Amino acid sequence: MHTVVFAPDSFKGTIGAAEVAAALAAGWGSVRPGDRVVLRPMADGGEGTVDAFAAAVDGAVRVPVRVTGPDGAPTDAAWLRLPATPDAPGGTGVVELASTSGIELLGERRIGEEAHTLGFGQAIAAALDAGVSRLVLGIGSSASTDGGTGMLTALGARFLDASGAPIAVGARGLAELASVDLTGLRALPPGGVLVLSDVTNPLVGSLGAAAVFGPQKGLAGDAIERADAALARLAALLPADSETPGAGAAGGTGFGLLAWGARLVAGSAEVGELVGLPGALAEASAVGPTVVITGEGAFDGQSGAGKVPSYVAAIAVDAGVDALLVAGRIDADADTSAFAAHASLTELAGSGEAAMQDPARWLRDAGAVLARSLG
């Protein structure tokens, strides 16, 4: 008998992490019904971060909020209030960029230079207005490349052109940026601001926000160069280091938060500690044979830089257990050498479209495939 720990991320836009874990466990159990199953759904700061905290922390309360989405449309979202602690007597507010300014809010549309983070800042302001003593911010799954200027605008900062007028929101407005006024920027809460980032990229350059992630958000050709130059202009005006790992996260929102005084950490590791994943692996491996199964929607060349699968693979090594991987698709440039076995829903279903139409079904099949690989 093995202990099998299921620690997947959500499959962005199709199925949440808890449902992924349950479907994989059902498939595994159909082949190896005698194994002990432990569910530890994960997140890395992107979509599903609020859900992960809500599931892990007793007494957490969702607080509805209406914000301006990345395309300017009214968007209903929620932030999470965690119970008071000695370090945070007013409670901790957990706010997720994905649900307020995220790319999934746009459906199939990609609006490039027009997208912004204003709604994320509005949700942060709502949590501050509610009196929280500390903030935890997840910044994955962004729709924009605005350097976090939309967010900071909602918090009281002013970004001005040469005439002293406010610039437009989004990366397009950054091209006109001449000065920044931070005198009205809200103070950090007493317990500070912890930012969960899923990448380690700098703000600008060949590994920066525009060059690496811009094409996913609708930037192409000259627009990528314009956005990179605009972010460099922003970097010269704000009090933060653009080379800080994670400054380029969420289209530069990581950099904007650094300028506010926040602290960036690896989102996967923070959530992993919260849900008790390292302890679960250590405890299980001390008793008997153990494997851990992780996954995400697209396992590609970026997955090794702070995403959930890379974090799980690393702590599996520390615990002396094998890690197995499931993904909606596994790209040709992806390095799967850290995993003893892997399964792709696209391959099982015959196409990416078929896999996304019924992900739970193919996740169950993937769980069964991995169970058979154990022998």
Rank of each mutant, 00 (worst) to 15 (best):
G367F: 01
L160M: 07
D222N: 08
G164W: 00
R172V: 02
T290E: 08
K217L: 10
A157R: 00
S144N: 11
L24T: 11
F53C: 03
L264C: 12
L324A: 05
E108M: 06
V61M: 04
A282C: 14
A355E: 09
E176P: 03
L80S: 11
P86R: 06
A125Y: 07
A371N: 06
G208C: 12
L238E: 01
T117S: 15
L231H: 02
D222I: 08
G306D: 05
R186G: 02
R36G: 15
S141H: 12
I167E: 02
E273N: 03
A98I: 01
A220L: 15
S197N: 07
L370M: 14
A349P: 11
A52W: 01
I111M: 12
A98N: 04
L80G: 09
E114S: 13
D318A: 14
V31K: 11
G34E: 15
P166H: 01
G107H: 12
E296A: 14
A123K: 15
A282K: 15
G173L: 09
A171G: 13
L155W: 04
A211H: 14
G107L: 10
A168D: 13
L237I: 02
A340K: 11
L325F: 04
A7M: 08
G221N: 10
G170N: 07
A7Y: 09
A22Y: 04
A240C: 13
G48I: 05
A249F: 10
A77F: 06
A247E: 06
A84L: 06
L277K: 00
L234S: 04
L345E: 03
R109K: 09
A232N: 02
A187R: 14
G48W: 02
P64F: 02
I293T: 13
P215F: 13
G267F: 03
D365W: 00
D322G: 05
A130L: 11
L363D: 08
L231G: 01
T244C: 09
T290R: 04
G221D: 11
A282F: 12
T68F: 00
D331V: 12
A23Y: 10
S373F: 06
V20P: 00
A88D: 02
A319C: 01
D129K: 07
A282H: 14
R226H: 12
G272E: 06
G254P: 08
V20G: 01
A115N: 13
L231K: 08
A23Q: 07
T153G: 01
L182G: 00
R134P: 14
M151I: 14
R172P: 02
Q302A: 13
L207C: 09
L196D: 04
